[in-house]
């Protein structure tokens, strides 16, 4: 299937990636090829087959609920684009 301009813009908004008007056509063409590739799956009979999310049947390990990490806030925030008083700064979200 191929996407309309409107659908592609919606997809880009969901993915939080800005797409310029002049990029739309090339992107539609390339994504169309990918969608055609994955459409091959539709023809496969998978009735009764359980989805496989992980190749080994592992159970999630549990551990005691105690603090094991040291506080690394300073070194983590040293590489942030904008920090003030230990807080990450973003544009105002609530007016």
């Amino acid at each position: 299937m191929s996407l309309s301009d409107q659908e592609l813009k919606h997809l880009a908004r969901l993915a939080r990636i800005h797409v310029e008007e002049n990029e739309l056509n090339a992107l539609k063409d390339q994504l169309g090829r990918v969608f055609k590739l994955i459409d091959a799956l539709q023809a496969v009979d998978t009735k009764g087959i359980e989805p496989l999310s992980h190749s080994l049947s592992l159970s999630q390990p549990l551990r005691e609920d105690k603090v094991t990490e040291i506080d690394s806030r300073e070194s983590y925030q040293a590489i942030a684009p904008q920090v003030e008083k230990g807080l990450y700064i973003v544009p105002k979200v609530i007016e």
Binding site: L11, L14, A15, V34, L41, E50
Partner: peptide
């Protein structure tokens, strides 16, 4: 392209047809 493809196959209405179907074929 890959982020957009992934967003597409996980979006409402396509999840079963693409994502779950792919996981079944994976088995």
């Amino acid at each position: 392209r890959r982020i957009l493809t992934g967003t597409y196959v996980l979006s409402r209405g396509y999840y079963d047809a693409y994502y779950l179907q792919a996981q079944r074929v994976r088995r």
